[in-house]
Write a protein that binds this DNA or RNA. Structure first.
Length: 875
RNA sequence: AGUUCUUUAGUAGAAUGGCUAGAACGCUUGGCUUACAUCCAAGAGAUGAUGGUUCGAUUCCUUCAAGAACUACCA
């Protein structure tokens, strides 16, 4: 049956994925082999596959497949992340379409809707990964809100609380007064707009003088608790220790000094409203200022607003301005352009609002995580990311772990009163009750009197446990699986979540296992579009990966993505890369077709074939060593490129051309068997990159039992390399290239045989002469001691080659060519001699460098002699 | 604004002080050579700028410029 000349990935890929699944090759369980483990960075349940996932998961699959071939017990754990914010937003949006408001339904009802959503969409992305060929152990698929993972999160919360590392504190949140909800920083858009900057005089207490402040929010004057100046500002030194009287409310507040104040801006004098500005809050904390919140949750003023109580903030601003003017303290008003935070969804102006949040103390936890990255116990690839990691870890701030959402792990704290500390922390309400009774001293306290904290923990507070919790290492710290698979080997992720996720996993690893969670972190680049923008869901500038795979094949897309994406560097995505990947697959396919089409006969092995195979086997070993080195250094795109060149250039363009029998002639069995073995070894090193194609060809070569499938084959062994033979081939390849150039210049068709004479000045080996004759279609390759007249010439090193020509030779052109070569070589010689004549170079440079310069000098001199002699004979 | 990183052919990317800066795609030219025109062959093309260290700098140091990532956003 004829094999099609074009490789059809679509027909092949599903077949082999099903085959691999059927025979359970992806599944791992602990055994006596050494484990090799990767946990997937869990994609969002709301997510669909985008190019970032494609790159990231291709890399992981390459690593895991190679580990499998190298005989490790390879385990790649897949799963998804519940992504509180993103998922909750999606569910809210969906409910809204159905006419349901989140505020109209109970928490339980909302969470049921969220689970419905998760069950419907959560598996999509994992199914898409199968198309890419990902060899995950699907039996181990985990979700961050699975029962055991959730329980792990709660346990860890309790543990950290008991260790005194979790506390409640106050923090500014982004409050949307319209939606009456807290927003994450990601949901706030800073929009530029023009407002007024009001200059207002505050009277100095017990003095006739005034200070003038500038503000965009005069209504918040009612919440002022200080006026601040820069301690270096000479204009205000006399005010140190004095108080001012806040207009309208006539509150007496201190004048304080803080470096934060910019002397150049406004009046150099800043009013401090800790309840309504993030920076003011920080200053307020430094100076122990009172916090006066003048707003209700809906954005209207409360009783601190005095006669403006009940008025919304915009209206109150206008009214306050009028009153200040009437009081004669409004100095001036000017236009002012600044950025104002607004809600992404409701467009309302965000109100910074102080609210009680849960925090985790980071400083001590971060210590081992910092040290073990800096000392390379955990290696970052590329290592340049260590710098920003250190910077962040050394200045780590306490982690705000609470989120004002429903979807997620609800914080296990139970309140019995309205006070900040009127709570207990326990696994559930049953365990909370006795604790609360004890804390209050009220034995009559009932479950109904307890109210669980409504906030959930930050999603990262569950995913930081991921490498441990997927093996149940929190709840059952000594179980067989965690002991076997942990620490995992490699983590492949994006640098933008180095702090959110990677750093925290390392922290959790040391805190809960006493050791690292993974040995290597491979940071991928960011996939960008042609305009250099990050490919993202929100921009919609990502190509559909499924369509790409249909068009170019999963193997083609894998190769395309990997080809130009070294660790940590951005990948400007271009579909032509996939095209290149597809072409590569087709090339390999056709190499197989060629071999498969040969008729094998019991004839003697030609000399050229024997040499060719000997050469390739050494070349393969040499390249294999380079590939191993690249893999060791996590330079996967280099490993692929090396493989690509080996297959395309050395195997297809050289080896197959060398051993190829004449037209319609059979091939000898010795050569054929050797070529098949070579092909099989090629397929093994190709398999991590192009799993489908390699398995397809592997199974075409011979009938294979399930135990003989390529996916579980044995990686080629390293053997000693005959470097001299490879050098001899390189020399021969240059000779062949010279012959091709002459053929091209003179339009001599390949089928017309030519003669060639060699003046072997260089005493080059003759081993590859049969190959030169074959690939150059030389009827007679003979050695001479004299120059040949009436021939075109070329040189390799100081060897000279003559191709006799019918008719006249263009002597001028030959002279021109020789002169050009002579000029170049003389220039080169000069630069070498300049170095050698420098005493300090000869004295200072290492011996081998000097020796190599001397060798260059000798070679150049020999070549110059050859060129001069040739020129002389032409003149 | 702060911290960090980057800068090599048209593009994307190797070379950690010493082979004539090495490959890939693209480009130019020429080829249907009996596996592949998704092919074959040949060719052109590069170290951001400045100053320094050194016998020698793509590599180390200064300054500048451009770009990127993260964090914070100003009364």
């Amino acid at each position: 049956m004829p094999i099609p000349s074009q490789y059809d990935a679509n027909k092949v890929e599903n077949k082999w994925y099903d085959y691999w699944m059927k025979h359970n090759y992806f599944h791992s369980k602990p055994d006596e082999r050494e484990p090799y483990t990767i946990v997937i960075p869990p994609p969002n349940v709301t997510g669909v596959l985008h190019m970032g996932h494609m790159l990231n998961n291709t890399l992981q699959d390459v690593l895991i497949r190679r580990a499998r071939l190298k005989g490790y017990n390879a385990c790649w754990v897949p799963g998804t992340d519940h992504a509180s914010i993103a998922t909750e937003a999606k569910v809210v949006e969906k409910l809204k379409k159905d006419g349901i408001n989140k505020t109209d339904i109970s928490r339980t009802e909302f969470i049921n809707h969220a689970w419905d959503w998760t069950h419907k969409h959560g598996g999509i992305i994992l199914e898409q990964l199968k198309k890419l060929g990902c060899s995950c152990d699907w039996e181990r698929t985990k979700f961050t809100m699975d029962e055991d993972l959730s329980e792990s999160v709660i346990d860890v919360f309790l543990d950290l609380y008991e260790k005194g590392l979790i506390y409640r504190g106050y923090r500014m949140v982004n409050w949307d007064p319209q939606a009456q909800t807290t927003l994450s920083d990601e949901e706030v858009n800073h929009i530029e707009r023009t407002d007024k900057l009001y200059y207002v005089k505050y009277k100095i207490e017990g003095d006739e003088g005034f200070v003038t402040i500038a503000t965009t929010r005069p209504e918040t004057i009612l919440g002022d608790t200080a006026v601040c100046v820069n301690p270096n500002d000479k204009r205000f030194t006399h005010l140190k220790g004095k108080n001012v009287i806040v207009p309208i409310c006539n509150r007496v507040v201190p004048i304080i000094q803080d470096d934060y104040v910019d002397m150049e801006f406004g009046t150099g004098c800043l009013k401090i409203t800790p309840a309504h500005d993030v920076n003011d809050k920080d200053i307020g904390e430094r100076h122990n200022l009172e916090v006066i919140d003048i707003l209700n949750d809906d954005g209207t003023l409360n009783h601190f607003g005095l006669h403006y109580q009940g008025m919304n903030r915009e209206l109150a601003r206008n009214e306050a301005v009028k009153e200040l003017d009437a009081l004669g303290v409004l100095v001036k008003t000017e236009d002012y352009t600044h950025k104002v935070g607004t809600s992404e969804r409701t467009k309302a102006v965000i109100e910074p609002k102080i609210s009680a949040q849960w925090f985790l103390k980071m400083k001590n936890l971060a210590k081992p995580a910092l040290d073990n990255v800096m000392n390379d116990t955990i290696k970052f690839h590329p290592s340049k990311f260590k710098n920003s990691y250190r910077n962040w870890m050394e200045n780590v701030r306490d982690w705000n772990i609470s989120r004002q959402l429903y979807w997620g792990h609800q914080i296990p704290a139970y309140f019995f009163g309205e006070g900040v500390n009127d709570f207990v922390v326990a696994k559930n309400i049953e365990e909370a009750l006795p604790l609360a009774q004890e804390k209050t001293g009220n034995k009559k306290l009932k479950k109904e009197n307890l109210r669980q904290e409504s906030d959930v923990v930050d999603t990262w507070f569950s995913s930081w446990l991921w490498p441990i919790s997927v093996f149940d290492g929190i709840l059952n710290p000594d179980n067989e699986e965690i002991s076997y698979y942990y620490p995992t080997n490699d983590l492949v992720t994006a640098p933008e979540i180095m702090f959110f996720w990677v750093a925290r996993m390392i922290i959790a690893g040391y805190e809960y296992r006493g050791e690292l969670p993974f040995k290597n972190v491979y940071y991928t680049g960011i996939v960008r579009d042609k305009q250099g923008r990050k490919m993202s869901k929100s921009l919609g500038n990502s190509p559909d990966p499924i369509k790409l795979m249909e068009q170019y094949g999963a193997d083609g897309v894998r190769v395309g993505m990997l080809m130009c994406s070294p660790a940590g560097n951005d990948l400007p995505f271009d579909e032509s890369l996939c095209q290149q990947g597809k072409a590569f697959a087709n090339k390999i396919w056709n190499a197989f077709r060629l071999i498969d089409g040969w008729e094998v006969a019991d004839i003697e092995q030609p000399e050229y074939a024997k040499i060719a195979i000997d050469w390739y086997q050494n070349k393969f070993q040499q390249t294999l060593a380079v590939i191993e080195d690249h893999f060791e250094k996590y330079r996967l795109s280099d490993a692929l490129m090396e493989t690509y060149k080996l297959i395309w250039n050395d195997f297809c363009s050289w080896l197959l051309e060398m051993v190829k029998p004449a037209y319609q002639q059979p091939i000898d069995k010795t050569t054929y068997d050797a070529v098949i073995t070579i092909l099989e070894n090629n397929l093994k090193i190709l398999h991590p990159f192009t799993p489908f194609l390699s398995e397809e060809i592997w199974q075409h070569i011979a009938e294979r039992s399930p135990e003989e499938a390529l996916i579980i084959a044995k990686w080629p062994e390293s053997k000693p390399i005959n470097e001299a033979l490879i050098k001899e081939f390189d020399f021969a390849a240059e000779v062949i290239s010279g012959i091709r150039t002459i053929r091209k210049q003179k339009n001599i068709a390949f089928k017309d045989a030519i003669e060639c004479f060699v003046l072997n000045n260089d005493k080059a080996s003759t081993t590859f002469d049969v190959v030169i004759s074959k690939l150059g279609n030389i009827s007679n390759l003979s050695y001479t001691t004299e120059k040949v007249d009436g021939a075109l010439t070329f040189r390799v090193k100081s060897n000279e080659y003559f191709v006799p020509m019918q008719g006249s030779i263009d002597v001028e052109a030959e002279i021109g060519k020789l002169t050009e070569e002579l000029n170049y070589t003389e220039g080169f010689l000069k630069s070498v001699q300049k170095k050698l004549s420098n005493e300090r170079f000869v004295a200072g440079a290492p011996e081998q460098v000097v020796a190599s310069e001397r060798k260059k000098e000798a070679d150049a001199l020999a070549k110059i002699e050859t060129l001069k002699a040739s020129l002389a004979s032409l003149n």
